[in-house]
Computed example of a mutant assay.
Amino acid sequence: MWLLLPFIILPILEIALFIQVGGAIGVLPVIALVLGSAVLGVAVMRRQGAQAAMDVQRAMQDFRDPAKPMAHGALVMIAGMLLVLPGLLTSAVGLILLIEPVRDLILRRMAARVRVAGAGFGRGYPGGPRPDGGRWGDDGTIDGEYTVQDDPPTPIREGLTDRRGDGGAGAAGPRRGDSGWTRH
């Protein structure tokens, strides 16, 4: 029921604002405001798609976190959609979302409510249990298994190995494209 409440209240508020503003400035200026906000919303959304992609790319090139540019881009896209919707209240909220300090405030409030339960990469949790039932060591040792494979895999397919079908015999030295890691 709570989910349906905005869909009931928002149209009633928009109609009431149309009546109030239309009575104050006239019908044609209100229609012009609604059409103008729709045109502005389309322009914002068209511009923001390319701008958001460039901001994220620039952040990744500078080795910064791309989350902030992506979040700002998403809020600007939401602002554009609100401007396109016919209504004075939605257009006002859309215009407010176009102001960067307002977006920063919204993102800070949202970030304060987010709690990260656990994330990261590494050796695991030193001193804690491992998935195989053992314990993680604190000495930095990494356990692993390996096998030695003398024969090339069959069949040798182009591009999968550095060997060209000669079975490893008669190779005079490294050929162009050999990494050196796969020679025996």
Score class of each variant (00 low, 15 high):
L3G: 13
L5Y: 00
L5F: 06
P6E: 00
P6H: 03
F7I: 09
I9T: 04
I12P: 02
I15C: 08
A16K: 07
L17Y: 01
L17P: 04
I19A: 07
G22Q: 05
G26I: 00
V27A: 14
V27T: 12
L28A: 07
P29L: 04
V30M: 03
V30Y: 00
V30T: 02
I31W: 05
A32E: 11
L33A: 07
L33Y: 01
L35D: 10
G36Q: 13
G36V: 09
G36P: 06
A38W: 15
A38D: 12
L40A: 15
A43G: 15
A43Y: 15
R46T: 14
R47F: 08
Q48R: 15
Q48W: 14
Q48L: 15
G49Q: 15
A52M: 15
A59Q: 08
Q61S: 13
Q61I: 06
F63W: 11
F63M: 07
F63T: 07
R64M: 12
R64K: 09
D65K: 02
D65S: 14
A67R: 15
K68W: 13
P69K: 14
P69G: 12
A71G: 13
H72W: 02
G73F: 10
G73P: 08
V76P: 08
V76R: 10
M77G: 04
M77H: 03
A79I: 03
A79Y: 01
M81Q: 09
L83N: 06
V84S: 01
L85V: 02
P86G: 08
G87S: 03
L88D: 03
L88M: 04
T90Q: 05
A92E: 00
V93H: 09
L95I: 12
I96D: 14
L98N: 03
I99P: 14
I99F: 06
E100V: 14
V102E: 00
D104T: 10
D104Q: 11
D104L: 14
D104E: 11
L105N: 11
L105H: 11
L107E: 08
R108E: 10
M110N: 09
V114M: 06
V114R: 10
R115I: 12
V116D: 09
G118R: 06
A119V: 12
G120N: 00
F121H: 14
G122D: 02
G122H: 08
P126V: 05
G127T: 01
P129M: 09
R130K: 14
R130M: 09
P131K: 07
P131F: 13
D132T: 06
G133Y: 08
G134N: 11
R135Y: 14
W136D: 09
W136R: 11
G137P: 10
G137K: 11
D138F: 12
G140V: 00
T141R: 14
T141C: 10
I142K: 06
D143L: 07
D143F: 11
G144C: 06
G144A: 11
G144L: 09
Y146A: 07
T147Y: 10
V148M: 01
P153A: 03
P155Y: 08
I156R: 04
I156E: 08
T161D: 04
R164F: 07
D166L: 02
D166M: 00
G170T: 00
A172V: 07
G173E: 01
G173V: 05
P174V: 00
G177R: 01
G180F: 02
G180K: 01
G180N: 05
W181Q: 12
T182I: 05
R183N: 04
H184N: 09
